[in-house]
Nucleic acid binder design. Structure first.
Length: 851
RNA sequence: GGUCGAGUGGUGGAAUCGGUAGACACAACGGACUUAAAAUCCGUCGCCUGUAAAAAGGUGUGAGGGUUCAAGUCCCUCCUCGACCA
């Protein structure tokens, strides 16, 4: 009877406690000790600690980073591999309102759950460096860094359009608004100009763009950042308003088409609209503007929607030919991009063409080269200028240059670079976030609070909602908090906005380096040792915002002389999402997997019998298809969970979760267990030997093959699935062996250890070793062991495999050719046909005979 | 609509620089062990022809074309899906 089977539930908690107690993965903070070894910084994007806890989708990110950290540690590096919590933010605040509890308590509860779940997976984090963005010890320094930005003039107040929900009395993020309504309650949302804190990220647009080149990031991700920054070069051109002394400026990337401009458009928010509108048109224009302002940018610029607009009754003068052209107001022009006004060239711009066709505005061809007549379709490609006076005959690129030069000489325009990137709206009218370390004097001047006053702690308030007169929740705080006496004796009122959730994550990777420093955000020497992050891993949903914001802050810190690298994250990989089967009825209602069953080849709900649609989609709480990591660990153990998440496919691929797949890696671990342990007795297997002189054996060769492949595949991170395949092959080979030298098994356990640390440690211990295998040295393979006396030559005729030939490894090309030509099976296919060509590819062990 | 990525057995996925397609698993099927079951071990497993079973052959990586001695891999056209942007 099997009395001593592989029992992860017993060995895993034991070794987790041992690692914790002996501080196995604690990284020294002493710079002299650190300098004795090279460094490596592996960082998984820290989680937002929602109440839902950790699911296997999170683990798909953290497991490979942990394997890699283990691997580098065994290779002799000091490895920074920390974990913490992104804890400020709206979901927690909402839970706080719902459960009538302080968000700090909810955060505490959630982070505790997360940590326990992570510890059960056996991650090798240095937990002593754990950080929480919502505690004063941390956000003190977030505020401190904000003051550095403020001092550099990178933070400013501006009136910007925001999503305002009157029913809730608060501003909402774009993600929370759909079709003009708040997604959760359906309350209407309107666009409203509000005074907000902005960060001048656009001042760094060029550097954010250029420095992408030096990063080891996936090309696609860099491209996404480039698109987001959206640099375009062109010109600002000034138009005069006819019969008026007013002018307005447009930005265009196509100054070469200026002769084709047949109208201009102002954004509905443009200040000139009310000034130039003809009295006869005023009522129509006012109505249009009022309606347009409530639409989102996306609605307004969507190519699929019908263009709308209204004529102001005023005309502009085209600066290149003095032609009067009508000025319209249309919502497809945004106040936030460029100058809020455009010159419209319907012949050579799709949206202008659509608009001009709809309103009967003339369409003029100024670039020749389109396939269809210009009235039918705009031509946006390269061609030759026509109907353009001094540009005629020039190609687009030359014409652009010429036109800009002409505009400059006439003082009617200037070359201009425009970015799609907007300044960052940095304030929120919420409670659960960092208070700004700023105050307002009575006369309206803004003053920064001294560094020594930090942290500015969140005050207790009676309700997490805006005040009756529409001020942010912090305005509910006690007067003692709201009023502040400045060092010079003046009194001021504190800023009551808070920072957005992104703030804390903009620099957390730096705080890990020196998590408990009370004098500074981090020690400069430690920063110089550890930075940059060598390998940053996380979801593609952060490909733009978080990574752009963090890069921006980092560059500001660099300019302040506070960090030594221009970029924070040298290497980066996006993990694929984990998918799972979900069940949905005709009304779109989701069901849990246990509520569904298969009946007559159809999927139905157990309770009601209604038929259900199944689909494979991203794992998420709202789709009722989340697999909790704890459940998997209860059934199979953490090592199986870890192995399965890696074996399921490459790190970067999105793959569906299949319960049955876990079974496979679990069986592999059981087989591994039985190599060492006799399940009947619980003693060491009788097949184990102390033999040393076994270097000639097949098993020894398989071991070295495994060392080689596991080392290479682990190094690439993305191929850990094939590393596990090779380990399976090794265990299968070892299972068949009549005797097993302990030495071979011990070496193998090193390879397994980063992947399945608990079982590797237990078996290592059972084989009589002391200490932690996770801290021992990674083995290297011996190439000589892998070479053998004979090789298999692939013999092809006309590119088709016909036979495999066993030949001595040192056979010459001539000998290979001879052996192939005389081979009986090969002969069958070349018989009676003239041989045209023979190709021997010796490094591929292949010969191809062409007849 | 644009940009980028991906389409390989019943399933997840392997396949280095163009050189043996389907590694390793899951599921399924057959066998051994067992009173029985579970577990374990052994075997089969793209499709078609062929055979009692083999042997053997053909065909095959979304579709069509091309380059090459040789294409899952490179080039062109198209289709489908995904991500991001509009």
């Amino acid at each position: 009877m099997e009395n001593h089977p592989y029992a992860p539930a017993e060995i895993e908690p034991y070794w987790q406690a041992e690692w914790q107690e002996k501080s196995a993965f604690k990284i020294p903070n002493d710079i002299e000790t650190l300098k004795t070894k090279p460094k490596f910084y592996v960082l998984g994007m820290f989680p937002y600690t929602s109440g839902a806890g950790l699911h296997v989708g999170h683990a798909k990110n953290y497991v490979p980073s942990d394997v890699f950290a283990n691997f580098r540690r065994m290779q002799g590096y000091h490895v920074m591999h920390p974990m913490g919590w992104d804890a400020f933010g709206l979901p927690t605040e909402r839970t706080a309102v719902r459960e009538n509890e302080h968000p700090a308590h909810i955060t505490e509860r959630n982070t505790e759950t997360f940590q326990q779940q992570m510890q059960r997976i056996g991650f090798s984090y240095d937990w002593s460096r754990k950080i929480d963005t919502s505690v004063p010890e941390y956000y003190r320094w977030t505020q401190w860094i904000f003051l550095r930005l403020y001092e550099k003039g990178l933070a400013y107040l501006a009136d910007v359009p925001v999503n305002w929900c009157p029913a809730l009395g608060t501003v909402l993020s774009n993600e929370e608004v759909k079709d003009g309504k708040y997604v959760e309650t359906g309350d209407p949302v309107e666009r409203r100009l509000m005074r907000q804190w902005m960060l001048k990220i656009t001042a760094y647009a060029d550097r954010l763009l250029e420095d992408l080149d030096v990063l080891d990031w996936p090309e696609g991700l860099k491209e996404m950042q480039r698109n987001w920054i959206g640099k375009s070069e062109g010109a600002d051109i000034t138009f005069k308003v006819k019969e008026s002394d007013k002018t307005f400026t447009v930005f265009t990337t196509r100054p070469d088409t200026l002769f084709g401009a047949t109208y201009c458009v102002l954004a509905p928010e443009h200040p000139l609209v009310s000034e130039i509108t003809h009295p006869d048109d005023a009522s129509a224009v006012n109505a249009y503007v009022k309606e347009a302002i409530n639409k989102s940018d996306l609605q307004r610029t969507d190519l699929a929607t019908k263009k709308t607009g209204v004529f102001t009754g005023a005309y502009a003068i085209n600066p290149c030919n003095n032609a009067p052209i009508p000025i319209w107001v249309a919502d497809y022009v945004l106040m936030t991009y460029g100058t809020g006004a455009i010159m419209a060239v319907p012949g050579h711009d799709e949206r202008d063409h659509e608009f001009a066709s709809a309103f009967g505005i003339p369409i003029v061809e100024v670039i020749n080269g389109g396939e269809k007549p210009i009235e039918e379709a705009p031509f946006e490609g390269d061609g030759v200028c026509v109907n353009s006076d001094f540009l005629n005959g020039m190609r687009v690129a030359d014409a652009k240059e010429k036109m800009i030069a002409w505009l400059e000489s006439e003082e009617r325009g200037t070359p201009q670079v425009q970015y799609r990137l907007r300044d960052w709206l940095f304030s929120r009218q919420r409670y659960w976030g960092e208070p700004f370390p700023l105050a307002h004097l009575e006369d309206g001047t803004i003053v920064q609070l001294p560094d020594e006053e930090l942290p500015i702690e969140l005050p207790p308030i009676d309700a997490y909602k805006p005040t009756e007169d529409g001020k942010p929740p912090l305005a509910r705080a006690d007067a003692n908090w709201l009023k502040v006496t400045l060092p010079d004796g003046q009194t001021a009122t504190r800023e009551t906005n808070i920072m957005p959730q992104w703030a804390g994550s903009c620099w957390y990777y730096l705080r890990f380096l020196d998590a408990h420093n009370t004098e500074a955000p981090f020690d400069p020497e430690l920063e110089r040792y550890w930075m940059p992050v060598d390998s940053y891993m996380g979801g593609a949903e952060h490909a733009v915002l978080h990574l752009l914001y963090a890069r921006f802050w980092h560059k500001v810190l660099y300019d302040c002389g506070l960090v030594s690298t221009k970029e924070p994250f040298q290497g980066l990989l996006n993990q694929g999402t984990i998918l799972a089967q979900s069940y949905q009825d005709a009304k779109g209602k989701y069901y849990y997997p246990h509520e569904a069953e298969e009946k007559d080849g159809e999927c139905v709900a157990k309770a009601s019998g209604v038929s259900l649609q199944t689909q494979i989609e991203k794992m998420s709480k709202s789709r009722f298809n989340v697999i909790n990591s704890d459940d998997v660990i209860d059934n199979y153990g953490a090592d199986s969970l870890r192995l399965y998440l890696l074996f399921i496919g490459p790190f970067t691929a999105s793959t569906p979760w299949q319960d049955a797949g876990v079974e496979g890696v679990y069986r592999f671990l059981q087989r591994t267990w039985r190599l060492v342990i006799d399940e009947d007795s619980g003693e060491l297997s009788e097949k184990l030997t102390d033999a040393a002189g076994t270097t000639e054996s097949e098993l020894w060769r398989e071991l070295h093959k495994t060392i080689k492949q596991v080392t290479e595949d682990t190094e690439s991170i993305d191929k850990m699935n094939t590393a596990i395949s090779q380990m399976m092959i090794f265990v299968n080979t070892a299972t068949q062996a009549k005797s097993l030298p302990k030495e071979i098994l011990k070496i193998f356990l090193h390879l397994l250890s980063p992947y399945a640390p608990h079982i590797a440690q237990e078996l290592w211990h059972r084989l009589g070793e002391t200490g932690f295998i996770a801290l021992s040295q990674w083995p290297t393979h011996d190439e000589a062991v892998l070479t053998s006396a004979t090789v298999t030559i692939i013999a092809q005729v006309n590119g088709k495999l016909r036979n495999r030939l066993e030949l001595p490894a040192d056979a010459t090309e001539k000998e290979i050719e001879e052996a192939a030509l005389t081979d009986e099976r090969v002969q069958r296919f070349i018989e009676g046909k003239p041989i045209r060509k023979v190709i021997v590819v010796s490094k591929r062990n292949l010969i191809n005979i062409v007849v």
